[in-house]
Amino acid sequence: MPRISTVIYSIKQGIKSLKRNRMFSVASIATMTACLFLFGIFYFLLSNLSHAIKNAETNVGVTVFFEEGISDAQIIAIGEEITLRAEVAYITFVSAEEAWERYKETSLNPEQIASFGEDNPLENSASYEVYLSDVSMQEVLVRYITSLEGVRQVNDSQEVANALNMVNRIVSIMTTIITGILIAVAVFLISTTISTGVSTRKQELSIMKLIGATDFFIKAPFFVEGLLLGMFGAILPLLGLYGIYHKIADFVSEKYASVFGTGMSLLGSAHVFARLIPICFAIGIGIGVLGTWLTLNRQLKKLN
């Protein structure tokens, strides 16, 4: 274990070095801030999107129609069989009358309704609406239900499910690529900062080596430097992101509340930041330490 005085010394030296290489320190922190800021924006998108997809999933259903002349008992039996499936969240029965009422309400004007008189054109259109707990299982379920006796037709919403999954995947890939590039740039800049630090302190370091400083003693201040760069590089974007997320959330709930009803709102900031804060710190500190580690041994070997 290093002495407390050594730890204090290392921290002091690390801070001193940060100040001495002000230009590079600022550049590293700025790059890391940009990197994590963009990452944060994509994270907002991604987490809200997957939130929206989860919501949408529960609204995506499969409609099951029956063959003509089927008995009520048979309908109940089919319902029971469907309910038994693991991927099914819940199931509701829509009678022919209900279906007609709904259709009248949503799609027809009073004149058109009057033209049908007392007839129910959807007489054979009683149905089950089946809601899934996992949209990706939709295809399997549809195949199963189609195979049941007494089922005439199954309408699915595979396209909606596919579209949602596609958007999700594209955003994930973009986040990964952009963050990856920015992380590489940040690691490179931190390496440069550290190697500049080594060369400006060349004399001191070679004296240290000559008078018997341990590797730990020589390296610790540089790791402190990298760590601090990483921490600043994480704190700054987080502050910015926090402000922006609130602005966006307010904007969205104001602007779109009336259009989409209550359905359209962003995830709560507490929920988002509970994850984003540790992720940003882990990336920031990781970049700082990795950048230092990558360059330090190489640079110190050059000394002797």
């Binding site: 002495r3 005085s5 050594t6 010394y9 004296i207 008078i211 018997g212 400083a213 341990t214 003693f217």
Partner: peptide, 11 residues
């Protein structure tokens, strides 16, 4: 003092 600091001599 640096020579002593470097080998972790107590302050």
């Amino acid at each position: 003092a640096f020579a002593q600091r470097v080998i972790e001599t107590p302050t």
